[in-house]
Amino acid sequence: MNLVRAELERLSARRFVQLMVVLLVLAFGVTAATTLAGSHKPSADELASARAQATEARRGMEMAFQECLARQNGTLPPREPESYYPRDCSEIDPVRSERLPITADYLPGVFSFAEQARPLLYFLIAFLVLFGFLVGASYIGADLNSGGVVNLLLWRPRRLTVLGAKLGALLGSVLALSVLASLFYLATFWVIGQTAGLAGRLSGDFWRSLGAVHGRGMVLVLLASALGFAIATLGRHTSAALGAVAAYAVVWELGARLVLEIVDARRPDQLMLSSHIGAWLTGETRFWDSQLCADSRPGVYCESFYSLTWGPALLVLLVITGGLTAAAFVVFRRRDLI
């Protein structure tokens, strides 16, 4: 316990960590300030007009759909240009549409919390993932190089305990900071929405789904921190972690993707870590599969998409991070520390 406390103090005293926290506060401040400056509370007139426009737009969609159906059934004569309507009317069925026009769409210059909370949260999570990875890597990388680990081992000659305390202190503080930062961040924008914008429809569903994204984001931040820590431990350097990620991105995500596309491999996306990260964070991502509909009869509707869901995606992320972390501990236990 004392060991973890000492590590927490060491971690918080690191210049790099302090710098990253300042950056976090700065990014946060700038986003909040520009949002605040670019938004105003809509007047009653604006609201009424926007509401009317949204209702109108929804009605327009419904009418187009009905008309399409009518033409298909032949109740209305096909009129030129026929191509205006899709062959399959369900494509423009408003009920099946992903998103219907709402009031907020017709309120330029008004910040809507319900509309913006998700993308804002994604941005914060992206920042925190980067933060966790860099802090995780530099914390152990610098300590391995400065002899801090050796000093500590002269006091506590139990390598696994020492490394475990470091990892624990890292994950604990990154999680605490991330939860605090994200809650404060969402609260701030919620207040902006309430006072200088539009709160939007904040239903139970909305909060549940936002909460789910938040929770999954925190898991992703922890995974990134552990990954940075593990690679830097394996490579003895902070830069090992940075290099590994850069190499992975260039060689696999870009290079291999290109090659796979050239050789027409099936479903290259599911081999990419980025797809799984996306699937985990959003719950599900859909990718195109060229062969899925290759032998379906023409005229029959065929979904040529397959999806990655959060469950298997999490498994992939856990196996990779867990494997590298376990490897780091095994290697660290035996290696010569100079």
Binding site: A6, A13, R14, V150, L154
Partner: peptide
Amino acid sequence: VESPQFFGNFTGYRTLRLLARAGG
């Protein structure tokens, strides 16, 4: 063992206090 390196940003006192804490 061989001139040990310490974390430059800490004071001498803090360096020792951290070690003392880690070692009980």
